[in-house]
Amino acid sequence: MLSLILRRLIQLPLLLLVIYTVTFILAWTVPGNPLEVEGRRPSREVEQAMRARYNLDDPFKFYGEYLWGALHGDFGPSLTYKDWTVSQVIGASLPVSIQLGAAAIIVALFLGTTVGAFSATRREGWGGLGGLADWGSMSIALIGISLPTFVTGSVLVMVFGLWLGWLPVGGWGRWDQMVLPVITLSLPFAAYIARLTRLGMIDVMTSDFIRTARAKGLSQRKVITTHALKVAFLPVLSFLGPAAAAAMTGSFVVEQVFNVPGVGQHFVTAVANKDLFLIMGVVLVFATLLIVFNLIVDVAYQFVDPRIEEG
C-alpha cells in the first residue's frame, strides 16, 4: 500500500512535466497574437514593451521562467483579465467546479444505486409488472446516458426556471441555484451507476451467500442492503474515480447553460484569447487534481476489496 502511494507520488512530478511540456508546445503554436483584444492591436512600442515583459519572443525563456514560477505557486498574470493573477482566477473558480462536481456525483450515487437495486430486485414479482418496471427504469437510464447535458439543462431551465419560475435560471452561491445544474450534471452519471448496480445485483442475487442469507430468514430489504449491495457496489466504486474527475472537469456545458462561474469556461476562453498564462495554469492545476483523484480511488479500492493486491 505504502509503496504504491510512494511510487505514484514519484510519478506525479514527471507526469506533470510531460503535461506541461505538451501543453506549452500546443499553446505556443496556437496562431494569433495574445496581446490583441477584440480586434484592436496595441501600438508598436506598447507591443514591444509587453513582449519583453512577458518573454513572448523567447519560447525557451518563457518555458523555463513559467515553470520556475509555477513551482512557487505563481502562475503569472492573466493577459485577458488584467486585474487578476492566474492563481486568483483559479482560486475563484476551482472551488465552484469542485462543489458542482462533488454534489453531482453524490446525487448520482444515491439516485443510481437506488434505481439500479430497485430495477434488479423487481424483475420478478408484481405479476408481469415487475419486468415492466425493470425495463422502464433501464430505458430511462439509457436515455439519461445518451442525452447530452445541454439538452437536459436547457429543458430544465425552460420548465423550472422560465415556465414554472420555481428555481433561478442561473448563478451560483445559494442552494436554490445549485439544484438544476447539479441534477443536470448528475443524470448521465446516475444512469451509468444504475446500470452498473443493476448488473452487479442480478449477479449477486443468484449467488450462494444470498441464498444462505434468505435461508436464515432475513427480510428481503435486509438481504439487499446489508449483503447484496455491498458486493454489487464494487464496479460502481471503480467507476467513481474517473466519474468524479469527469464531473469536476467536464462540467463546461453545464457551467455555460446555468451560468456557473466554474473553471470549465477558462479552458475554452483562455485558448480562444491565447491567454498563455491562464492556459498553462488551468491545465497544470487540473492535471494535478486528476492524478491525485485517481490515486485516491486506487487506494480506496484496496480498502474495500481485499481481493485486489498491489502488484
Partner: peptide
C-alpha cells in the same frame, strides 16, 4: 451587475425577471 459567461444565460435571467 451579474456576470454571465454565456449571452443566452443572461437573456434567460432577464426573461425570468432576475
Amino acid at each position: 451587475a451579474l456576470n454571465f459567461a454565456n449571452p443566452v444565460a443572461a437573456f434567460n435571467a432577464y426573461e425570468s425577471g432576475a
